[in-house]
C-alpha cells in the first residue's frame, strides 16, 4: 500500500475486487454466526462500518506516536473502547437484536478485519484516506453479510426482515422451508458459493 492510490479506489476497491471477506479472508467468524436472518446482519454490518471507520481514523491520527512494540495492544484498546460504546448503544436502543447477537458484537474486537485494516492501512496513511478505507471495507463486509443473510432467511424461514415473503399458496402446494439453511454450517456453504461465483468473474483471484 506504499504507492499513492486515489481516494476513490480506496473507497470502492473493497466492495468487490478486494473484498475483506471473500478475497482477504478476514472477519469470517461473525459472517457465519449472525446471518440467520436479515435484521441482525444489517445491525452487525452497520456496527462494523462505524467501528472500523472510527478506529481507522483514531489510529491514523496517533500513528506517529505509537511505539511499534506495543502497537497491537494500543490498537486493541482503541477498538475495544469503540466496541464497548457500540455495545452499550445497541443494548439501550435495540435490546432484542443485541440479545440475538449476544457475544458477537463484543467479538468485533477480535474481528480480523479491524486488526488487518489497522495494520495494513491506518498505520501508514493519513486520517482521511483511512476513514474512506474503513468505510469501504466495512461496506464490503456488510454486503457479504447481507447477501448471506438474505439467502438464509429467504430459503430457511420464507421471510425477509421478519415479513412473510413466500406466499401461503406455495405452502399449500407442498413447498417446505429448508430447515437446513438455518443451521450454522449452511452459512459456510453460501459463502463458499459466493466465492465460487465471484472468482469465476475475477479470474486473477483464482488459485494456481
Amino acid at each position: 500500500m506504499a504507492e499513492k492510490i486515489s481516494n476513490k479506489s480506496v473507497l470502492f476497491n473493497p466492495f468487490s475486487k478486494n473484498n475483506p471477506v471473500i478475497v482477504q479472508v478476514l472477519g469470517i467468524c461473525s459472517v457465519l454466526a449472525v446471518t440467520v436472518s436479515l435484521e441482525p446482519a444489517i445491525v452487525m454490518g452497520m456496527s462494523v462500518i462505524a467501528v472500523l471507520a472510527f478506529a481507522n481514523v483514531i489510529i491514523s491520527l496517533i500513528r506517529n506516536t505509537i511505539p511499534t512494540n506495543i502497537r497491537i495492544i494500543v490498537q486493541l484498546v482503541v477498538v475495544a473502547g469503540l466496541v464497548v460504546i457500540v455495545d452499550q448503544l445497541l443494548k439501550a436502543y435495540t435490546y432484542d437484536v443485541s440479545k440475538q447477537l449476544s457475544v458477537f458484537i463484543s467479538l468485533i474486537i477480535t474481528n480480523c478485519i479491524l486488526m488487518g485494516r489497522l495494520e495494513a492501512f491506518a498505520m501508514a496513511n493519513k486520517p482521511w484516506p483511512s476513514f474512506l478505507d474503513g468505510i469501504g471495507n466495512g461496506v464490503g463486509y456488510a454486503l457479504i453479510l447481507i447477501i448471506v443473510a438474505f439467502f438464509r432467511e429467504l430459503l430457511g424461514s420464507g421471510t425477509l426482515l421478519g415479513f412473510q415473503v413466500v406466499p401461503q399458496w406455495c405452502y399449500d402446494h407442498g413447498y417446505v422451508n429448508n430447515g437446513l439453511m438455518i443451521l450454522p454450517p449452511m452459512a459456510l456453504i453460501v459463502v463458499g458459493c459466493i466465492i465460487w461465483v465471484h472468482r469465476s468473474f475475477n479470474k486473477d483471484l483464482q488459485d494456481e
Binding site: P185, G192, I195, R199, Q206
Partner: peptide, 13 residues
C-alpha cells in the same frame, strides 16, 4: 474458481 478458500468453506460446512 473454487480452489483454495472456496472449497475450504464447503468442506468445513
Amino acid at each position: 474458481p473454487l480452489r483454495g478458500i472456496g472449497i475450504t468453506f464447503i468442506l468445513t460446512a
